[in-house]
Design a protein around this nucleic acid. Sequence first.
DNA 1: GAAGTTCGTGGGACCGCTCCCACGCGGCTT
DNA 2: AAGCCGCGTGGGAGCGGTCCCACGAACTTC
Lengths: 347, 347
Amino acid sequence: MRPAEPPPSAADVRRPTLNAVAARAGVGRGTVSRVINGSPKVSDRSRAAVEQAIAELGYVPNPAARSLVTRRTDSVALVVPDAETRLFSEPYFSGIIRGVSAGLASAGMRLLLVMVRDEKEYARLAPYLSGQHVDGVLMVAVHSDDTLPDQLEALSIPTVLAGRRGDREPLGHVRADNRGGAGSAVRHLLAGGRQVVGTITGPLDMEAARERLAGYRDALRSAGVAVDEDLVAAGDFTEEGGRAAMRELLRRRPGLDAVFAASDVMASGAVLELRAAGLRVPDDVAVVGFDDSIVARHIDPPLTSVRQPLEEMGRSMADLLLDEIAERGSGHRGVVLETRLVVRESA
Amino acid sequence: MRPAEPPPSAADVRRPTLNAVAARAGVGRGTVSRVINGSPKVSDRSRAAVEQAIAELGYVPNPAARSLVTRRTDSVALVVPDAETRLFSEPYFSGIIRGVSAGLASAGMRLLLVMVRDEKEYARLAPYLSGQHVDGVLMVAVHSDDTLPDQLEALSIPTVLAGRRGDREPLGHVRADNRGGAGSAVRHLLAGGRQVVGTITGPLDMEAARERLAGYRDALRSAGVAVDEDLVAAGDFTEEGGRAAMRELLRRRPGLDAVFAASDVMASGAVLELRAAGLRVPDDVAVVGFDDSIVARHIDPPLTSVRQPLEEMGRSMADLLLDEIAERGSGHRGVVLETRLVVRESA
DNA sequence: GAAGTTCGTGGGACCGCTCCCACGCGGCTT
DNA sequence: AAGCCGCGTGGGAGCGGTCCCACGAACTTC
């Protein structure tokens, strides 16, 4: 029943081509091309004529034609696992995206947003990305056992990650100083006179969660406090996980007087649980979160939290990727950006 | 000093072309093309041979080459004003994007994210989008006086908006039933026995804000309550704006016992202001917000709010746009999706 | 004043596809 | 047995750019 499907559009007025511009300006195609690409080897007279013709005709170069011969697409993909967008504290993606977008825009690059819903889609990604669709790939929320980055590497597609998969990340990546940030959070708690400081970790198959835990340990150690494993409870970056972990901590160490949660969302769960247990925040138990997300500002009491420079991270990712695209191998670096402790009333 | 810039990449292994597939499968180019595009006029034998060759070679069609001749790009742009991403309640963009992305993916379309930072960039957008870069355009956060949609229309570029600019929107658009949602919020307040219900509006150059105000009036009128303009205060979708508006309302009508704010963020500002004035929520003044954003769940007390089906909205936008791309004129419709009142403790 | 440079320029070849026309071949009709 | 139909097929043309080579004019150099 399927009809022959002829191009159904009626009003596809043919856009002017480079040829038309050349004819109008009275020059050859090569000259027009040179003007468009900013080549210096064009006389002022020709350039002016071409520019006028372009303006008059409203000419815009056809990217497909250009891409076909240059083998560049002037666009990069940002790969985002759909499931994580719900999980991550809210400003995370929008912050990164803003930075990435700004960084790319200033280089005239376009941003392709690729949301991955399930494993099947994920598996199709490597072939797809290798098919001359994009010049490079940015990935966020990479798990430690993720192999897509390596596949891309093998296909020699420039790739930059937000965060790293382990402490030896071969690919270019940008991350916040999670360890240092966590350390500063815990030091803040200790400086406030807290004695028994617990922590609620993120899922430990993510390097960021491991780093935050390491920072917690660093701070205790350098304060001369022995790390007590009973004070470490595993969460999963969800509010419910935070509640459960808090419950567990209270069971194990009823006397604890401070908690560092590896995300604000978990911290907000912890606050709820503390309140349910009849404890006051921060009077009885101080709480610090991580991310400085929207919830941090709005829960009661407002949450002290560690802020990551998300926009800057996005921008760095873009810059690193552009370097790598321009000159393979040059972008294989790790960039670490400082965090900042935002002190509010919870600690 | 600028060197001649030869293509600097070293490892750009040439991807297999359609020609290579044809040679390997022992058929002509036309046949391979037919197989790829699912034409029925191919014998099973040829099809099998081609499919095997494709698998063996790991062939992926070059989108630029295809696009050059078909005059389609299989991608659409989502235009997002950067400034608004900070303003809008947080799940808004991610929800819409998720829906859009899902809708496009199922049709094999790609999503180009275009963030617009300032007026200058915005002005460049029409020429850019007309330049064969995308098959269609989705726009969010369109203001009433925005003319870009009309320009796109004039360039015969399929366009779909999130929300409408006025009550006669010529272009295809998808929106939540803002008026009905606001009405249900205010009815809920009245049903709870509240007598003096104020409202904090959004910026009235946005149709959604006007509609929410209209819904507020509807509900009062149909309950037989006269609308008192002193009970209407203008906000701007920010928390500070919400605070200021609340202050103003309290000044004008100290006895009011309920407020409907046109966004959660403004509602949270209102709650802060009420508390500062020594009033309890909901005991003294009930509050309802709009958006059912993250803050709604986390502020104290948790906020009753009107939820929009964001993901579905995104999906509808994608569907509408795809219709319009397939057959011009078919997508010029307005889709209205129902909202849902999420009752929590603030009202 | 002849030979060599430099500079700006035009245009052919080509990138990898899709579209479409023409052709061969087996099965029907008459 | 000759003619016709239609299916499956190969391959030429062309999409709109970039790249690069060759060429003519102006300008040096000896």
